Simulated assay, not measured.
Amino acid sequence: MKVAVMGAGAVGCYYGGMLARAGHEVVLIARQQHVEAIERDGLRLDTQHFDERVRVAASTDAIAVKGAQLVLFCVKSTDTDSAAKALAPYLEQDALLMSLQNGVENAERLRGLLPQEAAAAVVYVATGMAGPGHVKHNGRGELVIEPSTKSEEVARAFVEAGVPTEISNNVRGALWAKLVLNCAYNALSAITQLPYGKLVQGEGVTRSMRDVVDECLAVAKADNVTLPGDVDAAVRGIAETMQNQYSSTAQDLARGKRSEIDHLNGLIVRRGEALGIATPANRLLHALVKAIESKAS
């Protein structure tokens, strides 16, 4: 299968690298510094189970998506519209775009922007870019994907590449369940610049997280979302399975970049307002992260 990864940062490099390692033809569309390193030395996949350099194509240009049957769409939620516009002239008619993004609205946005089929995926992985062309895997890695015309083929490819993958009819619920986890951890990790394991040891942190989660669950219920599994156990488990992981929001703020907070706690605030649900804990976290962003800019 020919695969293109649009927005090959930590998440895109990990999943694209795993597919390339398994023998698929993969091109990573990434920033210049990563492309130069990957072309020179290969992609360094530094995982919990192996540390290898994988030979994979890389480009800074959206034209590299030509011919791809599967496009892993991994840009920040803030860049969904502009990235879709950049890809539009080069996408194959029968290409499947799979959104491996934070937030709950991206696949739907893609369907409104492009004629190609778009499907949502829920990503559970702790990764970061340790340097140009060097992705560091800190834990987990499974995917939950939405049914599509290629879902069976895609799931099989990922499983054979060592990525646990499940096809689910309730991806909306799974996306919301992940949104709850992100709302609980991302902003607090960003504000404190602490990894999850140390974050939860702080005085009053777990009680504050409880307030955030309760608001998220109230909004989800009012929005008729069915969340799978035990959300409370999942929230607790993040700090145990990803102790050394900093949130993507923390990584963005540390680099002086705009974060996805509008699509995380900010979404809960907006949906809460629309549904008549008070969300003061999420509103405060959203406001604090936005203030830090403004200070950096």
Rank of each mutant, 00 (worst) to 15 (best):
H49P: 00
H49V: 12
E52M: 07
Q48T: 14
A86F: 09
E92F: 02
G67P: 05
A58I: 06
K76Y: 03
L28C: 10
D79K: 09
I38F: 04
R31A: 11
R55V: 11
D46K: 12
A58M: 05
H34C: 10
P89G: 00
C74Y: 06
T60N: 07
V26A: 05
T80R: 00
L28Q: 07
P89M: 01
L91Y: 03
A58D: 06
Q32E: 14
A30E: 02
F73M: 01
D81S: 13
D81Q: 14
Q93N: 10
Q48E: 14
K66G: 08
Q33K: 12
E52R: 08
A62P: 04
A30Y: 01
L28N: 09
S82G: 04
A68P: 03
G42Q: 12
D81M: 09
V26P: 01
D79N: 13
I29L: 10
R31H: 11
F50T: 08
V35R: 07
H24L: 04
D81H: 13
I38L: 07
T60Q: 10
Q69W: 07
E25L: 09
S59L: 08
T80L: 00
G42C: 13
A37N: 00
A68T: 01
I38V: 14
L91I: 06
E36I: 05
A62Q: 05
K76Q: 03
S77N: 10
D41Y: 09
F50A: 11
E25R: 11
A37M: 00
R53K: 14
K85V: 11
F73T: 02
R31S: 08
A68Y: 02
I29K: 07
Q69S: 15
G42H: 12
E92S: 12
A86P: 08
A37T: 00
V35C: 09
A84S: 05
L96T: 02
R53P: 05
R53Y: 10
A22R: 09
D46L: 09
S59W: 08
I38D: 06
A22V: 07
D41F: 10
L87P: 07
R53L: 10
T60P: 08
L43Q: 01
Y90S: 12
H34R: 06
T80V: 02
T80A: 00
T47K: 05
S59I: 07
A84H: 02
S82I: 13
I29F: 06
V75R: 04
V71L: 08
V54S: 02
